[in-house]
Amino acid sequence: MEIIKDTITFMYPNKLVFENVEIKINQGEIYLLIGRNGCGKSTLLRLLAKIEPYQFKLHLVNEKEISYMPSDLVYYSYMKIIDLLKFYDDTHHNFSLDFALKYLDEFKLNPKQKIKKLSMGEQKILNYLICLSKNAKLYLIDEPFPYVDLLNDEIFRNMIINRYDETKTFIIATHQINEFEKLASYCLLIKDYKTIECLSTDEIRSTVSLSVEDYFKEVMRYVKDD
């Protein structure tokens, strides 16, 4: 069952990002979104999250059932961790404060700490935590892994599995392909502004005997710049 099936053409004032790119997202799958720097991963996520003003059809999921994690944490500078969590609890009906507090504990973060004093990694963790604490149908996650240590990465993966069910779809954009490829069922590879390849991760492994990471390096190494 598709939740998104469309052709996207999108540009910023100075740059063409996508031109007639076909995109198909199925429900209940975990997607890995990969591509070189500047190819439009973040833009694609913003489009799919309905943050940029761009029209496309979204099936089975309505706009409020999307949980988007931007690559930088968004917060008001006066806030402590618990303030931000309470904010989401108050304003988002699908946010689960219990889920958030439970994992806050696992990550060993102190709720009374000021957010602006947190390290980059801790902010990433909080960002990710908030995104997954919402009970949504579509999760769009932009670069969760930078600055986060390997043991915490494990907890990240656990959180996804715990949240996962057949009605939920995940799309995770990352450069740390190896951290995540075993968990992903499909990979969306942005080759250039005209093509996004959608491949099953297991198929890549069966047919070419390469991990997704190695496949990506092979494919992208020789792509010509237009």
């Binding site: 209940g28 799958e29 975990i30 494990e154 993966r157 599995i161 715990n162 996962y164 075993k182 968990l183």
Partner: peptide, 13 residues
């Protein structure tokens, strides 16, 4: 779900 967590593999697989 438990198997997915132990092996960190996609539940669909």
């Amino acid at each position: 779900r438990d198997m997915a967590i132990i092996l960190e593999v996609n539940p669909n697989t």
